[in-house]
Amino acid sequence: MSIITSSIKSADREARYLSLGELKAIANFYQGGQDRLRLAQILVANETEIVNKGSQRFWQRYPNTPSNTGNPTFRASCMRDQGWYLRLITYAIVLGDTEPIEQTGIKGTKEMYESLEIPLKNLAECMRCLKEVTTEMFSLKDAAAIAPYFDYIIQGFL
């Protein structure tokens, strides 16, 4: 939920207009919007490269993982899922909140991957590799804005 929606919701609970403080916070959020869009656009433009590099690093570190057994389906699913998580991260960046990651990518994840017999520890490492190759592309300031969303996913797998 964006700060806009959450402020409106709390104002509505009290049947009042938004306070000056709330509006100032929202105005800041609007102002940061273009910058968040910029970060998301960079991620979108480099998705393939990020996923490729992330996968390579992951397989180097964890050679004994289902996606590295030579099974093309496992391999493709692993890379597809990385792309999906990256997409959820771009949503979260634009929104300024982890809700899209949580709703689509965290709830039920453990149960799903466990039933697919994919070790969660490996998944967490895979996301860590994705985080590393992504943040290496950005300046320190931009990387600091993006990293927490990766951490959120990694935490969700542990």
Binding site: K24, Y30, Q31, Q34, L37, Q41, W84, L88, T90, Y91
Partner: peptide
Amino acid sequence: TFDVRAQYPDSDAMNRLENYFKSGDLRA
């Protein structure tokens, strides 16, 4: 809208978002 299609927002949607952020001061 775009998550259920597993897509990134298209350029129309991006423009709408950008204009929305730009008009933030006006709205507040």
